[in-house]
Write a protein that binds this DNA or RNA. Structure first.
Lengths: 151, 151
DNA sequence: AATGAAAGCACACTGGT
DNA sequence: ACCAGTGTGCTTTCATT
């Protein structure tokens, strides 16, 4: 299904998704044609979910990143919460989780005051009961290609 | 520095980083030429950190995602921990955080047994003292372009 | 900053091994 | 599964505004 050549192609596209098929073909020593077929197949099969540009929040002035565990009030509607979250621009990612809290969110803010405003908004408008937050000091660089190592 | 046209281009490239300059030019009503210049400038200035292929762990058989807060032993070397983490393929992302714990990590595993093995390895080989983990039920779809809304 | 023209490349097809 | 050829489309450079 996913052989060594596919893995090489994926690793190259993780580093730079805009590489041409011709460039890729030189790396894996196949024709550009075959490479294009393989990449299209990897995309169609869902192994590659998408090709996307990744922004740097710090360069956009949002240097304060926070992680927060979130618990909703008993009467809150989880689906609605998830939907409403998309209109909170400081929220950059989120997952529903098991355990003591309901969600874990990541925020990119300009400063503490902005984070404060967001937390207030979550509590007053979005049914949030409890927030357990901490600051992100830095990201650990992880190569997403690691996923392929045991796959 | 980053005007409305840049924002449009970024939003388009977040959805699909492999769109051609020609395609982008039709959306923003500029020449392909100018669009190429703008995108290269956004990349060079660091606003766009990278163009990357994004994998789907579930399709690769890693359907069990975990979030874990990690605390190191007092004598552990944080820099060394971060370095060694890169040889643990189940770790797909990580940040250093303030507060009670030192790091927050994301894992993509095949099954609970694999996660158990990883946790043991972190404790025996990487100086981890305490692990507070919970399962990821699902990801909330967030448009990364949100970052641009207030920037 | 933005543009058009034109050369050089890359891409999607078809067809063939 | 892979490759070559072909027509079409894309990217780049350069001159120009």
């Amino acid at each position: 299904m996913v052989d060594d050549i596919d893995r090489s192609l994926i690793r190259l596209l993780i580093q730079d998704a805009r590489r041409t098929y011709h460039e890729l073909s030189k790396e894996v020593r196949l024709s550009a044609n075959t490479v294009a077929d393989r990449v299209r197949r990897l995309y169609a099969s869902g192994v590659i979910r998408q090709f996307r540009a990744e922004l740097d929040p710090a360069v956009l002035g949002r240097g304060l990143n926070m992680v927060a565990d979130i618990r909703l009030r008993e009467d809150a509607d989880r689906a609605r919460f998830e939907y409403e979250l998309r209109s909170v621009p400081q929220v950059v990612s989120g997952v529903r989780i098991t355990g003591e809290y309901d969600f874990e969110l990541r925020f990119a803010c300009i400063d503490p005051a902005e984070f404060e405003t967001v937390v207030d908004r979550l509590k007053t408008e979005l049914g949030v009961r409890q927030v357990r937050s901490r600051m992100v000091l830095h990201d650990i660089a992880i190569d997403a290609g690691q996923l392929l190592d045991l796959a």
